[in-house]
Design a binder for these strands. Structure first.
Length: 639
DNA sequence: AAATGGACG
DNA sequence: GTAACGTCCATTT
């Protein structure tokens, strides 16, 4: 971590290979951006100071310290890369709610998306308001105990918490009120900005003619289902509407440890084994510190090829010989490496035919299927696992939510992204954070601090028959709907859908990531050029959960045709709620559309069937809920 | 259940 | 020439 104050006002960047993976605000002001080549960066900013960042050790350790610190407040912490954490602070909020005197006057901490904090009455959103206090406390603890600064977002689900966390960039927090959900998702500049929509998915959506969030919101679910299958289609649509019923799943200790390196070229077996050995030396060390014993070993590589050089990695794995695994876990590091190199070469030869020329640009070695300690009874030894908290814990937690009182549960997640482009501003704190933040990682411990809690939320008003709400329906959203729609949704016809969970909850508080500011690796995409956030777009859009039988069914058709009425941004009246519109019968949609049609075509929206993509439809198998899933204990954190 | 690739962050 | 991780899912054997 860079903590030299002398560097505070100097343009600084973290370099990995020939790329500037991230940089401070001083550098950004000079035009340096993330993932810019070193050459380009120096051209923009000749005085740019670069620090090597290939070794992720420090980032990783700091990253785990952060996660552990958060867990000391509440165990429901889910990591997203090295610099983001989601936290479900429902319980904390509930406790505080119970302890908060009825008349107690309080306000939101930090910003409130799209409004002037002063205009918002905390008493109208007690759970979120308390969540904002919790987020502020967490950020403060992170700053005082780890020296890191970062952002946080407080909302009713993970998606929203993540989206809102970056509204005010350097080292600030933002809360999102349910009534502004439509504004925040609608303000996203494109589908790629939707968490969960990556390059591939964006391409497929584009092939369907969808480019904006609104396009996706309005696209008929059954048509979307033909491309992605029912479950994915529903998920995508929900995301576009700001609906996310996924739980905050505690991450615990990592499920695998790997080390890799990229290079211009390696074309001889000898060079390959040398590189593998180098990687194994550090990996074995890390594995040893971890204490668990790997049961599987994997070798991955990337070959050079002029065409299609994009990803494409190939891998081969094999069971880890027991004695080798023990060496790693116990002590014989060097021994283990000696045994592993030839094993890795066997895997290598399963992929590369050395009798022909080859050209590798990356090699990765990975230990997975980690088994926690063994032999000895639990006693001592070894690496303790400190937080012995396992799958059962998370299970309880989640079931807890479900039953948690009426519905409201606040989930907190902290998305945060480090990074952030953002103008300069308070360089003091920010920079400080930057330095430490830049490379956080590693784990290790952190003592507990326990604190509070709160109490519930409320979804107050109209009591809605929660027990009848179909899954996938966000109660908070539900309650905003017109009564007739509420009734409709509560009817048996909507009761199907998946068993999953969540129905619940409304208010969720999410605290996004408190993390760092720009981290080199992980989180790559984070940088929203932010444009969306600021827009004070129009008011809220009430959404209506999907689930209407007509669209739910996989092939219900009727709309089986390839072209559906799909208003583009231009022709869609701004006062019409897209969600509601999309739920109308197709014929009605067409009718309305023809009435509105007038604007210029604009936007290319070839709703053509996509070319070569395969479409998996129908057979959405539900592989049962993945209940068990061995969630390892987090013994990762030592005392 | 293990192996492998893909998508995402 | 996006870097260095890591997670979870789908499919195949």
């Amino acid at each position: 971590m860079i903590r030299n104050p002398a560097l505070r006002d100097v343009p600084l960047g973290i370099q990995q290979k020939y790329i500037v993976v991230t940089c401070n605000y001083v550098a950004r002001d000079q035009g340096v951006t993330k993932l810019m080549t070193v050459a380009a960066a120096k051209e923009k900013c000749p005085q740019l100071v670069l620090v090597k960042g290939e070794d992720l050790t420090h980032y990783r350790e700091m990253s785990y310290k952060l996660t552990e610190l958060l867990m000391s407040y509440c165990p429901l912490v889910e990591r997203l890369g090295f610099d983001e954490n989601f936290m479900d602070i429902t319980k904390m909020v509930e406790r505080r709610l119970a302890e908060t005197p009825e008349s107690h006057n309080f306000s939101f901490q930090g910003h409130v998306y799209n409004r002037l904090s002063a205009d918002v009455k905390a008493s109208d959103h007690p759970s979120l308001a308390l969540g904002s206090h919790i987020a502020a406390e967490l950020r403060d603890a992170i700053h005082s105990q780890l020296g890191l600064t970062g952002c946080a977002g407080v909302a009713t689900n993970k998606l929203l918490a993540k989206l809102v966390s970056g509204a005010f960039k350097p080292n600030q927090q933002t809360s999102l009120l349910p009534e502004d959900v439509g504004a925040i998702v609608g303000g996203l500049s494109g589908l790629r900005k939707v968490p969960g929509v990556g390059h591939q998915t964006a391409k497929r959506l584009q092939a369907l003619g969808l480019v904006s969030v609104k396009d996706l919101q309005l696209f008929p679910l059954n048509a979307l289902g033909k491309e992605f299958g029912g479950p994915s289609a529903r998920r995508l649509r929900n995301l576009s509407l700001g609906i996310d019923d996924s739980a905050v799943v505690p991450s615990g200790a990592p499920q695998s440890l790997s080390d890799e390196d990229s290079f211009r070229k390696i074309s001889t077996a000898k060079h390959v084994s040398e590189k593998i050995q180098e990687l194994l030396v550090s990996l074995v060390q890390r594995m040893h510190k971890d204490g668990r014993q790997p049961q599987t070993f994997r070798l991955t590589l990337r070959r050079y090829s002029a065409t299609n050089k994009w990803f494409s990695r190939e891998s081969r794995q094999c069971p880890m010989p027991n004695h080798v695994g023990q060496k790693v876990a116990s002590d014989g590091a060097d021994e283990a490496v000696v045994q592993l190199v030839p094993l890795a070469m066997k895997l290598f030869h399963r992929m590369v035919d050395c009798s022909a020329a080859f050209h590798l640009t990356l090699i990765n070695v990975c230990f997975s299927n980690l088994r926690t300690g063994g032999a000895a009874v639990g006693g001592k030894g070894s690496i303790t696992s400190f937080f012995t908290h396992s799958a059962s814990q998370s299970q309880d937690a989640s079931s807890d939510h479900q039953s948690s009182a009426r519905g409201v549960m606040t989930r907190c997640t902290p998305p945060q992204k480090a990074v952030s482009t953002e103008p300069p501003r308070r360089s003091g704190a920010e920079l400080h954070g930057w330095s430490r933040t830049q490379r956080p990682a590693v784990a290790v411990k952190k003592p507990p601090l326990q604190m509070e809690s709160g109490s519930t939320t409320s979804s107050h008003p109209k009591i809605t028959p929660m027990h009848r709400l179909p899954p996938d329906v966000d109660p908070e959203v539900f309650r905003l709907l017109p009564e007739e729609l509420q009734e409709e949704l509560s009817s048996p016809a909507y009761a199907n859908s998946r068993p999953g969970l969540s129905t619940s909850s409304p208010a969720v508080v999410c605290v996004p990531d408190i993390t760092t500011n720009g981290s080199p690796r992980s989180v790559r995409e984070s940088q929203n050029i932010d444009k969306g956030a600021e827009a004070k777009s129009r008011t809220a859009v009430t959404r209506r959960p999907e689930g209407s039988s007509a669209f739910l069914g996989e092939d219900v058709t009727e709309g089986g045709r390839t072209s559906f009425p799909r208003p583009s941004d231009g022709e869609f009246p701004g006062d019409v709620d897209p969600t509601v519109f999309s739920e109308l019968p197709l014929d009605v949609q067409r009718e309305l559309m023809s009435g509105w049609r007038q604007q210029k075509a604009a936007l290319k929206t070839p709703s053509s069937r996509k070319p070569g993509r395969r479409s998996s439809v129908g057979k959405d198998r539900k592989t049962a809920g993945k209940g068990a899933q061995a969630n390892n204990l987090l013994k990762y954190f030592k005392p």
